[in-house]
């Protein structure tokens, strides 16, 4: 809940800006600092967090809390990564909050990627059955701190699912249960189909 208060505070500040204070107010300075911090991520995650490289995830439009949770998990080494565990340690809790604010406000840009339309069709059904309750709106929504899946890069999603499956990354209870059901019914093919579905969305 903390971040929502923070968001209100920002809104209040920019509101006061509109009334007539100069851009050197606290709100503007905070925005400038948030941009400064977030721009350091663009080399790997793309300008404003929309990646054009298929292994690096887009982080634009990510939920505020999910961003913070992810960075903290990297910082503590609780989520596996090649490089993010090393990079996250360079940012303070306050800086992570500022970056979360920045990226959650960016628009997620969906770039075209290859997919198999037959598999995507299967994936669509599987998504409805197993995933849509949390990853709402066909995986397009970031509400309730769900990761955006629709249009996310397939190679990245494969890495993520591998990490979940081999236990190196922890899952929420609900997801664990649903994924178990999915794997039992459909096997690895089911997961591939889901990823084709997410890759198919524009």
């Amino acid at each position: 809940m903390k971040y929502r208060l923070h968001g209100l505070y920002l809104l209040f500040m920019s509101g006061s800006l509109f009334i007539g204070t100069l851009p050197s107010s606290v709100g503007a300075a905070e925005t400038a600092t948030a941009s400064m911090l977030s721009n350091t991520c663009a080399g790997c995650h793309g300008t404003n967090g929309s990646s054009v490289g298929p292994a690096s995830p887009s982080i634009a439009g990510i939920s505020n809390d999910y961003f913070i949770e992810t960075m903290q998990a990297y910082k503590k080494g609780e989520r596996p990564a090649t490089i993010m565990t090393r990079i996250a340690k360079g940012y303070s809790d306050e800086e992570i909050k500022l970056m979360a604010g920045f990226f959650s406000k960016q628009k997620f840009v969906r770039y075209e990627q290859k997919f198999d339309s037959k598999q995507a069709k299967v994936g669509k059904k599987l998504h409805k059955k197993y995933c849509n309750k949390c990853h709402e709106d066909s995986g397009r929504s970031a509400e309730d701190d769900a990761g955006i899946l629709a249009g996310q890069w397939a190679p990245y999603l494969h890495y993520t699912m591998d990490d979940f499956n081999n236990g190196s990354r922890e899952m929420e209870k609900k997801m664990k249960k649903k994924l178990k059901q999915l794997r039992k019914a459909e096997g690895d093919k089911g997961i591939d189909a889901l990823i084709h579905f997410y890759a198919s969305q524009k």
């Binding site: 663009a42 790997c44 490289g53 298929p54 292994a55 690096s56």
Partner: peptide, 17 residues
């Protein structure tokens, strides 16, 4: 192996950025 995939993605992102 992932580092290579990330290297190639980094290349695409930084040049676009």
């Amino acid at each position: 192996e992932r580092e290579v995939a990330y290297a190639h993605s980094w290349f695409m992102n930084i040049t676009r950025d």
